[in-house]
Amino acid sequence: MSADLGHSGQVFADVAATGRGALVGFLHVGYPDVPTSLEAMRVLTGADGGSEGVDLVEVGMPYSDPMMDGVTIQRAGTRALERGVRTRDAFAAVEAVAATGTAAVVMTYWNLIERYGPEKFARDLAAAGGAGAITPDLTPDEAQEWLRVSDAYGLDRIFLVSPSSTDERLTSTLAACRGWVYATAVMGVTGARTTSSTLAPELVRRIREADPTVMTGVGLGISNGEQAREITAYADAAIVGSALVKALLEAEDAGNPSDLSGLRAVVADLAAGVRSGQGARSGAGTSRPTAGLVGT
């Protein structure tokens, strides 16, 4: 049996077929403000012509108590909330990304979905052209309602696995995912790190062992193109968040929050990074066959 690649896992598979790993980029809706954040997401996709862009956009929803996030994402999220960002703005961001032809998923803590109404959230996300959602504080154990509504609206549901996940939980979490699985590279919260994780390759190996057809993105701590290339040598996608958000924070701190040139440079470096490697499914750095990965 092969994994259900949904919309966003299929993006990874299509990228893999071109002989490289995929790049996933996170930005908040609402930071530095809603209109500029939508423009920043276009930069992320490369639709502005600044770079080749990411393959999948994570539209982050700012939350008052983001317990999986480090200071960079906290700070931007807090400012976005102070400036009045609303849950519904995420759908506008998803629409803006989808209009560029790049796929988008939402990344959100569960209470925002619960409060909006899971059914209504799934409906509005699907209507906006969103592929699905990443839920950092919702595991399949508490996800009965999310499983139901994501099925009903054909949305991907990306759960997290961790180096501390037991084999049993790894297997059950992979089974509950649609699209791909988010492997957290380190034991810790989000934030750019200068050294590469030693835990991530082993975690990805365990995921492959449990189900070789599951698409895997690795996140937490990836800050530049070189790290993205390293990650995509063994994982299907590299996920970058804080390094992108930091570029926006620096623009604001320099007095020009609408200046997206710093962001553009980080995206270009990352996009070049994944393109300098061959990807995890090319056969070069791996013995796994690629057959059976597509066509689900």
Binding site: W110, T139, D141, T184
Partner: peptide, 14 residues
């Protein structure tokens, strides 16, 4: 109640 936590904490809670 329940456990609305990152997967990273599950093993420790268990």
């Amino acid at each position: 109640g329940g456990k609305f936590v990152p997967e990273a904490l599950y093993a420790a809670l268990q």
